[in-house]
Amino acid sequence: MSSFIEKEKKARRAAIWIIGGMIGIWIVLSIFSFTDSAARKRPDTTQVTFAGQTALRGKQVFQAYNCMDCHTMVGNGAYFAPDLTKIYDHTGPAWLKAYLSSPGTYPTRAIVNVNLQELIQSGAVGPTTLDDYLAKYPGAKSRVEERGGVQALMPNLGFSADDIKALIAFLKYSSKLNTGGWPPKVIASQSVIQREAEKLESESGLIKSRVTGELKSPNSSGAGGAGSSPIALGKEQTINLGCAACHSVDGSKLVGPSFKGLFGSQVSLDGGRTVTADTAYIRKSILEPNADIVKGFPKSVMPAFGGTLTDEQISDIIQYIKSLK
């Protein structure tokens, strides 16, 4: 019996030594975890920036909205919404900016273009055409083509313009992380993927509900006979541009004020002024959206549409808004 106790004592001492050794290995490995080597360099949130915002601030916005308890980031999170680690590489900054401005709806081609032009003008993105951009970011291309104007599941969180830029900076940072080959590359052929995707979509039971009406390419406007009145042309413009993602036509509050009953109404602005929503006001709001911000709505979220719309198109849109009593 006593020899058993001796043996047990020895074994326990050995176990404690082994655990001590493990702690040693652990500490050494941990130190190497955070040292840069020639093969891998850790990106730094204070170095990565986008449009004047650091990724560090983006990380703070990301945490402040608790994004991780719906999405996953480096695979950790809630599995309720897509993983965001590499989303920047996939869709690029212009699509992200367009989407984050009104997360309730997938941005249309036109709205991505407006955001792209704005980013180019501010110098955040080098000069490029929309087609080149979409070719560079296939995720943005497929999203615009397949989902532009379609409702998304994400709630409208009302990000400010700076929040959005900071989030993009953070997502730019996270896409630079060396995640050791995760998520694994897709090697299935396009035809298999296409087949499965179609099967799932038909099974889904959810209708791909576009926010308003049918989607048309912006270049084909005015071709149809029914769409030749100014009101119809204006409506088409608002659909193609994705206005409805933020401005409802039924009076409900989305990201921006509703179009319903807007024309001719009294609008109270930030700073206490009250103006009448007439043709000049709406025109100005389209061209320079940040000149007058309606009380209770975020600033700098709507991109400026100057340069993308002709005078005629703007007046069509105003006619359409006028018709929404």
């Binding site: 897509p82 989902r147 993927i193 799932l200 979509e201 959810l206």
Partner: peptide
Amino acid sequence: RILGLDWWAHQVRPAMA
């Protein structure tokens, strides 16, 4: 992961309905 489908509402969610 295998198919890389990422349209959450119409592809990933229905697969797990």
